[in-house]
Amino acid sequence: MPDKLMRIRRADEAMRPIMIAIAGDSAAGKTTLTRGLVAALGRERSVSLCVDDYHRYDRTERRSLPFTPLHPLCNHVQIMEQHLQLLALGQPILKPVYDHRNGELTRPELIEPHPLVIVEGLLPLYTRLLRACFDVTVFLAPPESVRRDWKIARDTAKRGYTPQQVLAELRRRETEAEQFIRPQRRVADIVIAFGLTGASVLLRPTIRHPNFVGILADTGVRGVAVSLTRDPEGIPVDALRIDRDLRPSDGDAVAKAIWDELGAPGTLPECLGLLDDRRDEPLRLVQLLLLFHLLSKMGATPAA
């Protein structure tokens, strides 16, 4: 189906799901963002899936290939397009499953349609047709030094690699990351970079964002700022900065103002921003920003 026809069909579907894509390179923070959103929305009304499950080859088979999992040829892109079209129109799919713990392709999983669908992975914004399936698009772009450290920590703890193996794989993937992963940044509504000093967020005018200028003027908090700038493509955007050492009370003030602008009754979800046993304020406000977009498009609030 052409991407323009897909957009038209979605516009005509009164009961279609609200879809968000969270794209980015390996260990950029996609799963952490997604986990908080699902916890806030509730599994009755939301479902998440990872398009890395559409890998064409298992880990053993990939060792003899001239490309890495970042390359479209290493993924069933056409099946991914077909499945996301079905989900975007409220239809179930039988999704493949790639087990990252052992690198094997396992039993497919039935994904039923939900009012809110969160899609994360390496290539969810790779084609026009994929992009036409989404209401909100996000790209994660942490500094490469930070992402490298996150990937080493994750892959050694959870996937059985040594630090030397992780670094070698990063070097092997660099060309394909530049060719296939990073260009998705240009087509995202929101570009997020978590770093050592906090989070920076580019808000493109392709969707309506919270009124951060008014929110910050009203709350008078320190540690959060917004300015008008241009992104690397030369497009005027709002740049939101959230400091790592933002005081929880200031974070509460900004979060409440965003929640009030949404018109959401009840209390803010307590699950946002959780990292292990602590709350990270930049992560909390970024997750709340994405929650704002999902709920404003749905006209609903999270389950209690």
Results as ranks from 00 to 15, higher is better:
L167T: 07
G220R: 00
L86S: 13
V286F: 04
P17N: 03
M80E: 07
R222P: 14
D149E: 10
Y126I: 06
K297Q: 15
D238P: 02
I215M: 10
V221A: 06
L288Q: 09
C271D: 15
V237M: 06
A11N: 07
V51I: 09
Y54W: 08
D155L: 08
R7V: 11
I8L: 15
P183D: 14
S227C: 06
P269V: 00
P108R: 01
T162K: 03
T175W: 00
E44Q: 12
T175N: 06
T137V: 03
A239T: 07
E169R: 00
T301R: 05
R171V: 14
L5P: 02
L203S: 12
I118H: 02
G42K: 03
L73M: 13
D53G: 00
L33P: 04
P205S: 01
V221I: 04
A300R: 02
T175D: 07
E144D: 12
S48A: 15
V97Y: 12
M80I: 08
R208T: 14
P143Q: 00
E174S: 11
T34V: 13
L283P: 15
R131W: 02
D135V: 01
Q184S: 04
P282W: 01
F194Q: 06
F67P: 15
V187M: 10
V146G: 03
L129T: 11
V226T: 04
A11M: 11
P232M: 00
A168T: 08
I18C: 12
C50L: 08
D276A: 15
E270L: 09
R247H: 13
P124R: 04
T229Y: 07
D231C: 05
G42T: 08
T219K: 01
E169G: 05
D280L: 10
L290G: 06
L196H: 04
H293W: 01
R204P: 11
L291I: 02
P236N: 00
P210H: 03
R43V: 11
V224L: 05
I190T: 12
I207L: 12
R7M: 12
G29Q: 01
R35Y: 09
D52V: 03
Y57L: 13
P124E: 09
E44F: 12
G90N: 07
C74A: 15
G214D: 09
G220P: 15
V136I: 11
E281T: 08
M80H: 05
Y98S: 04
R159N: 01
A157D: 01
T175L: 04
A157P: 01
P17S: 02
G195H: 06
A27F: 09
G24D: 01
I181T: 06
L130F: 07
G103A: 13
G234M: 03
E233A: 14
E233N: 08
R182L: 11
R59K: 08
E178F: 07
L295S: 05
L283T: 09
V38M: 08
K151C: 09
Q165V: 05
V136Y: 02
C74G: 15
T32G: 09
V146A: 02
G121L: 14
F67N: 10
A21T: 02
D238Q: 15
C50S: 13
R208P: 00
P124W: 02
I190H: 06
E112K: 08
Y126E: 15
K256L: 13
V119E: 11
E281R: 06
L130R: 08
D53K: 00
A303M: 12
R247F: 11
G198D: 03
T197C: 12
P282V: 04
R154C: 05
L105I: 15
A257T: 07
R154M: 06
A300S: 12
Y98T: 02
